[in-house]
């Protein structure tokens, strides 16, 4: 028993060692960008769901902290300050799935193809989300979400989301290199670590345990490796379910994604798994507190409806589900 635990811990530590420099580099990048862009400015820049605003939301999201909880809290804060709901959700998705640290980590641990998938698939997922919102998100639903948001119920990482230490004076280079800028960067850097170390640690422990204890033959059978076509369809379906039950989010998912990939899950399965970090159970509960149960269900269905094109035949079902959830009829 002790040997098995030691083996799992050793695997977790080895994975941590493999990604450590990339994590530090990624968090530093994130800290630099957060130090030069203010949250007030972000809210003001997202007044509608036009393509220009959505692209801006993606850029601002990519420039924010990758902590999923902080991203969700910040999106609500921006929504309350007047940002458009769809733009706030695009910002939220970009915050966790278009950030540099995730791309670097994927490249180091799994290969550049996954980094490319992140930066190509992320905008595609956001585009599909915006289309779904345009079709199904009525003003009445947004009003209900705003009423609930105005109640200001607490989620997680509210403090992180509320911290605006950005520097406003001078050029970007001056902001980065000034004494104030360097201090802000150091604060954002440590704050991001403080917000994410549990997720990263749990992700590594789960990944270590799975890679040490679960035999490859199980993964091969689970991911239907004997049936290449079925495996391609099954991967994107099962990936998000594994993500939801794993309770880990953001960059903490990458080590687990590496284990699944080594176990034989399809490429689409890994990408779906990574993009599912905004629908893990704790975050769904936060949506419920922030926007109400109906919107929480809406976001769950809308986010799961954007899975890679392999699942598009399933989309009409999702559309009907959303319609039913929001209007009580198909």
């Amino acid at each position: 028993m002790l040997v098995a635990i030691a083996h799992a811990l050793s695997m977790a530590f080895t994975m941590a060692w493999e990604i450590l420099w990339a994590l530090i580099l990624g968090f530093w990048f994130s800290a630099v960008i957060q130090a030069v862009v203010s949250e007030e400015e972000m809210s003001r820049l997202l007044p509608d769901d036009s393509p220009k605003t959505i692209i801006l939301a993606c850029g601002l999201g990519a420039a924010s902290s990758s902590c999923s909880y902080a991203a969700v809290a910040l999106a609500r804060s921006m929504f309350r300050k007047g940002a458009n709901f769809t733009a706030a959700m695009a910002f939220q998705f970009a915050s966790t799935n278009l950030v540099l640290e995730l791309g670097i980590l994927l490249g180091v641990l799994m290969g550049w193809q996954f980094t490319l998938a992140e930066f190509v698939g992320g905008p595609l997922m956001i585009a599909i989300m915006v289309l779904l919102f345009k079709v199904f998100l009525t003003p009445r639903i947004v009003e209900a979400a705003r009423n609930q948001a105005e109640k200001g119920l607490q989620g997680r990482m509210e403090g992180h989301a509320s911290m605006d230490m950005s520097i406003h004076e001078g050029s970007v280079w001056q902001r980065m290199t000034s004494a104030k800028g360097r201090t802000a960067i150091s604060h954002f850097f440590v704050m991001d670590w403080a917000s994410l170390w549990i997720d990263i640690g749990v992700g590594l422990l789960i990944a270590g345990a799975l890679s040490a204890w679960v035999p490859n033959s199980f993964w091969q059978a689970f991911f239907l490796q004997d049936h290449p076509l079925l495996a391609k369809l099954w991967g994107p379906l099962i990936g998000p379910i594994v993500a939801i039950v794993s309770f880990v989010c953001s960059v903490g998912n990458v080590p687990l994604a590496a284990v699944l990939w080594n176990g034989g899950i399809s490429f689409g399965g890994v990408v779906s798994f990574l993009f599912a970090d905004l629908i893990v159970f704790p975050i769904l509960d936060i949506y419920r507190k922030y926007y109400g149960a109906g919107i929480s269900a809406f976001l769950l269905v809308a986010f799961t409806s954007r899975w890679p094109p392999l699942l598009w035949p399933w989309k009409p079902y999702s559309a009907f589900s959303i319609s039913f959830l929001m209007n009580g009829k198909l």
Binding site: S77, R80, K81, G159, M163, A194
Partner: peptide, 12 residues
């Protein structure tokens, strides 16, 4: 960090 951990603070 203490301020950040204080969940009673409202965003903004």
């Amino acid at each position: 960090l203490r301020m950040m951990s204080d969940s009673h603070h409202e965003p903004g």
